[in-house]
Simulated assay, not measured.
Amino acid sequence: MSMTETPAGTPPVLELERVTVVFKTGTPLNRVPLHAMREVSLRVAPGETLGLVGESGSGKTTTGRVALGLRRPASGTVRFEGGPFPRRRRALAGRMQAVLQHPQWSLDPRMRVGRSVAEPLVVIGEAAGADERVHAMLGRVGLEPELAGRYPHELSGGQRQRVSIARALITRPAFIVFDEPVSALDVSVQVQILNLIKDLRDEYGFGALFISHDLGAVRYAADRIAVMRAGEVVETAATEVFHTSPSHEYSKQLLETL
Results as ranks from 00 to 15, higher is better:
Thr10Cys: 00
Gly76Tyr: 11
Phe242Asp: 05
Leu50Gln: 01
Leu254Ile: 14
Ile170Ser: 09
Pro152Asn: 12
Arg71Pro: 00
Met228Asp: 04
Leu209Cys: 06
Arg140Pro: 02
Thr27Trp: 05
Ala238Trp: 11
Asp179Cys: 04
Thr77Ser: 08
Glu180Cys: 00
Leu34Ser: 10
Gly57Val: 06
Arg71Thr: 15
His213Trp: 03
His153Lys: 06
Phe210Glu: 07
Met228Trp: 12
Gly231His: 05
His213Pro: 05
Arg172Asn: 12
Ala217Phe: 04
Leu14Arg: 11
Val32Lys: 14
Tyr204Phe: 15
Val40His: 09
Lys60Phe: 02
Ala118Cys: 10
His135Val: 12
Thr257Gly: 03
Leu68Asp: 14
Glu240Arg: 10
Glu119Lys: 07
Val234Ile: 14
Phe175Ile: 07
Gly51Leu: 04
Arg71Asn: 05
Ser183Cys: 06
Val117Gly: 10
Lys252Phe: 00
Val78His: 13
Val187His: 07
Leu194Trp: 01
Arg150His: 09
Val40Ser: 06
Thr4Ser: 14
Met37Ala: 11
Val113Glu: 04
Thr10Val: 07
Leu155Trp: 14
Phe85His: 08
Phe178Ile: 02
Ser116Trp: 08
Val66Gly: 12
Thr6Asn: 15
Thr244Ala: 13
Thr171Phe: 05
Gly129Met: 10
Glu232Cys: 08
Ser212Asp: 12
Ser156Trp: 07
Gln253Gly: 03
Asp214Ser: 00
Phe206Ala: 09
Arg219Gly: 05
Asp223Asn: 11
Gly64Lys: 04
Gln101Ile: 08
Leu16Val: 13
Pro11Lys: 02
Ser183Thr: 13
Gly69Tyr: 12
Gly231Ser: 11
Pro28Lys: 09
Glu17His: 00
Gly76Leu: 02
Pro84Asn: 07
Leu200Arg: 01
Arg167His: 09
Leu52Cys: 14
Leu147Trp: 03
Met1Asp: 09
Glu5Thr: 11
Ala168His: 15
Pro86Tyr: 02
Ser106Ala: 14
Thr77Pro: 00
Glu48Asn: 04
Ser56Cys: 06
Leu50Ala: 00
Phe242Leu: 13
Leu200Ser: 11
Ile176Lys: 07
Thr244Lys: 10
Pro173Met: 05
Leu121Ser: 03
Pro28Asp: 15
Thr49Val: 11
Lys198Gln: 14
Thr257Leu: 06
Met37His: 08
Val177Thr: 14
Met137Asn: 12
Glu55Trp: 13
His243Tyr: 15
Ala67Pro: 06
Tyr250His: 09
Val66Cys: 01
Ser56Ala: 13
Glu256Asn: 05
Pro73Gly: 14
Lys198Met: 05
Pro152His: 12
Gln192Pro: 01
Leu258Ser: 03
His248Ser: 12
Val117Leu: 04
Ala168Gly: 10
Gly139His: 01
Arg115Trp: 15
Ser247Asn: 12
Gly69Thr: 15
Val19Met: 03
Ala36Val: 06
Leu14Trp: 09
Thr49Gln: 08
Arg224His: 05
Thr63Phe: 02
Met37Pro: 03
Ala222Ser: 13
Ile193Met: 08
Gly149His: 08
Pro103Gly: 09
Val13Asn: 06
Val177Asn: 10
Asp108Met: 02
Pro246Ile: 03
Ala174Thr: 06
Pro120Ala: 10
Glu17Ala: 10
Glu48Ser: 08
Pro246Met: 04
Leu255Arg: 14
Thr257His: 04
